[in-house]
């Protein structure tokens, strides 16, 4: 038998939900533990190796100098880095603050010691280090996490779903939430989640990041025709993927709506 891959699971600033999405594969986690050599997992382990890793999963957004140091160090120790979840892939909710005044924010919350807070620009990890794979989603899809680990063990190349959430939503035979005048981001968001939110009656907030062929012009115009202002649409887009949207809209006529 080939040597077991040496694996680490790390979290920087985040909610631990992605790490739990790995553990919460209740029927398979024991087999996963046997199939790979988990040398680091500070959330559930006290002894965490400082040695090299074949694969390192990282959850969380880079919001501080410490976070930045940690991801750089993990990169040096790992052959393959996997961005686990929307914080690591897109910046998630902390990245909204890139478009707000940091000092005001800090003062607002920590009234007594605003100078103590390290308020850098929150970033997804690929803006700091090279990342080989991404498993987006808030939370990541447990089946996709399993498929990734399976592909890895079989030496297959893992591929993300690149079509829009709308494709899976239509396959589920749902009615369209845009028809209810909701800012559903299904048309511009990457699928792979089986359109779980729209299927349960909630609009898509874009947690899996932009679809490859996201057509912003058509999307903004469609919402405008429903009397929903581009600034309102932009707020919804900023919820989970503010960094990517900002990058895509630079130099377009939609840039000013913020």
């Amino acid at each position: 038998m080939a040597k077991k891959p040496i694996v680490g699971f790390y979290g920087i600033t985040g909610c631990a939900g992605c790490l739990l999405s790995v553990i919460f594969n209740e029927d398979e986690i024991v087999d996963i533990i046997k199939a790979v050599d988990i040398v680091a997992f500070p959330f559930i382990k006290s002894d965490n190796s400082k040695g090299p890793m074949d694969i390192c999963f990282i959850e969380g957004t880079v919001v501080s100098l410490d976070d930045e140091k940690i991801v750089k160090e993990l990169r040096e120790r790992s052959k393959v880095v996997v961005a686990l979840g929307t914080c690591a892939c897109e910046g998630n909710i902390p990245a909204i603050r890139n478009y707000t005044d940091d000092k005001k924010l800090s003062k607002w919350l920590y009234k007594k010691n605003p100078q103590n807070q390290d308020t850098r620009t929150p970033k997804p990890i690929h803006e700091i280090i090279q990342v080989e794979y991404r498993l987006p989603g808030c939370p990541p899809d447990r089946d996709e996490v399993k498929r990734f680990i399976k592909d890895l063990l079989l030496n297959k190349t893992f591929r993300n779903v690149r079509s829009a959430v709308c494709v899976e939503c239509k396959l589920n035979k749902n009615g369209c939430l845009l028809d209810n005048n909701l800012v559903c981001l299904g048309p511009i968001t990457s699928g792979g989640c089986n359109a779980i939110c729209p299927t349960h009656g909630l609009k898509c907030y874009g947690c899996r990041g932009l679809a490859d062929d996201a057509n912003f012009d058509e999307y903004f115009e469609l919402l405008k025709s429903k009397k929903i202002k581009p600034t309102e649409v932009r707020k919804v887009m900023d919820t989970f993927m503010a960094r990517a949207v900002d990058e895509k809209l630079k130099g377009t006529k939609w840039e000013k709506y913020h």
Binding site: I12, T13, T61, V63, S64, D66, D67, I93, P94, I96, R97, T100, K104, L105, S106, W108, L109, Y110, Q117, D118, T119, P122, E232, K235, V236, T239
Partner: peptide, 18 residues
């Protein structure tokens, strides 16, 4: 020593349903 995420001020100005 967790990094600050500022959930509360980020809610300001958003739709109540968010």
């Amino acid at each position: 020593i967790e990094g600050s995420r500022y959930f509360e001020p980020l809610l300001k100005g958003r739709d109540y349903r968010d």
